[in-house]
Structures are given as C-alpha cells and as structure tokens.
Amino acid sequence: MTDISSLILQGLAAVLVLSVLGLIATVVVTAVRDRIRTARRERLSAVLLDICDGEDLPAPRSTRDAETIADLAVRLATSLKGSDREALSAWLQRSGFPGRARAWMRRRNPASRLRGVALVTTINGPRSGRALVEMLADPHRRVRAGAARGLGITGAGSDIPALFSAVAAGRIPAGLAAMSVLRIFPTSGGQLESGFSSRDPSVRRIAAEIAGRLELADARPRLERLLGDSDATVVSAALAALVRIDDPEALTALRRERDRLADDPTRREFERTISRLEALEPVG
C-alpha cells in the first residue's frame, strides 16, 4: 500500500514539475519565435516598400521569405490603391508568386488555401478571376467566402453569375454574395440578369437589392416582373428597389399587381410604394 501510494505521489509530483517546466518552455520558445519572426518581417517590409516605390528587386530565394513577403503584401495591399498597389502586384507577378499562390490553393490545410486565395486577390493578374471562381467550390466554407470576397475586389461583371450560382448551390451565404457583387459595382441591370432569373429566391432577392442600391434604372422592367414573385421577400426587395430607382414609369405595373392582391400586408406595402412614386409623378 505505502509503496504504491508513494509511487503514485512521486509520479504526480514529477508530472507537475514537468508541467511547470513545460509552461516556462512554452513562454520562452514563443518569445524567441516571435523575436525571429519580427526580425524577418522588419527586413522584408523594407524590401516591400522599395517595391512599392517601383524598384525592381530579385525574387526572394527562401520559401519562408516568400511566405512572409506574401503575407505582408496582402496586408499592405488592403490599405493601398493606385500606383503603389500596381507596382506591388506587377512585382509579385514577375517574381513567381502566381505559381506559389496556385500551389497554396491546392494544399490540404484550408488555412493555407485561403492564404493562396488572398495572394491571388492581391496579385490581381489576368488569371486571378478564373482561379477565384474555381475556389468558390472549395470544400471549406471559409475558403469559399474568401474567394467570393476576392472576386469582389478583382472581379469583373462577368464573374457575377458565378457568385449567384454559388449562392443557389448553397456554397456561400446570400448576404456575402451581395456584398461581393456590390463591390464589383455592376453598371447595368443586364449584368444582374442571371440573378433575376435564378431559381433560388434568395438570389432573386439580392439581385433586386443590388439593383435598387445602385439605382440601375434599366433594371426596372426586370424588377416589375419580380412584383409577382411567389416569394414575399423577393417582392419586398423589388418594391424597395423601385422606390430607390424612382421612376414613375413603374406605376402602371405596380397598380396592376396591387389590384390582383387581397387586403393584406403585401397589398399595403404596394400602396406605400405607389404613393411614394406618385409624389414624384409630374402633375398633369
């Protein structure tokens, strides 16, 4: 009995001492690691600023340096536009970073794939859009969200359908897609066509919201067709968008749809929209 208990106690004491040593080691190791990382960042951030100034420096040789530069560039680029940013992305393209980004996007670790997505977004080269559209099908939610965000930054109107269909396929939330499409800044209702005709009501809803927010006047006929939508949230979004677009032409369609409705909250919503637009209609 005594033998066993002293054995257990000694074992426990040893584990405790080890855990304290482990804690101290953790603190020391992380402090040293931080110092090394900070020194590397210091050195490479100077390089990065030279690049923004338009200097042409050789590509980094070590993988670790390349990774750090990529991280720093992604971070800095979120605050920059214009010539600094162009100089940065031109240098990244020349220095083999598109290849690194592609390799990262194929890694098993989802955080590494998102790192690839972020780098592709920052490089913003000729093939960035296509790479990001592919990443909308990534198995990890957060990587897909990153790809949608990247498309918002780099994207052209031609990428909008991909965002809408990612929502319809349940790959990204509608709200996130709306943020990205708005960021792309479509200039005509035609660019939202795939959204208006989507089978997913949440896609039709965000298409209407974006048309309203950007006051795309040529989207009016499409919005009028959504007034008869089977989904109430789509109808509300279309009504709100028509108010923002502010075109009394919409009154004919609004009155026609209203007359088909019973006296319910939707009808009252129509009434409100109509009276707001009537206030704008030229008298006589």
Binding site: V74, R75, T78, N109, A111, A118, R149, I153, M179, R183
Partner: peptide
C-alpha cells in the same frame, strides 16, 4: 492560422 486581413478590411 487563418489569414484574416482581407476578410476584415472588406467587411
């Protein structure tokens, strides 16, 4: 491990 700079800046 997630890089979050772009996400946060965009949000």
């Amino acid at each position: 491990a997630w890089p979050a700079e772009i996400d946060h800046a965009e949000i």
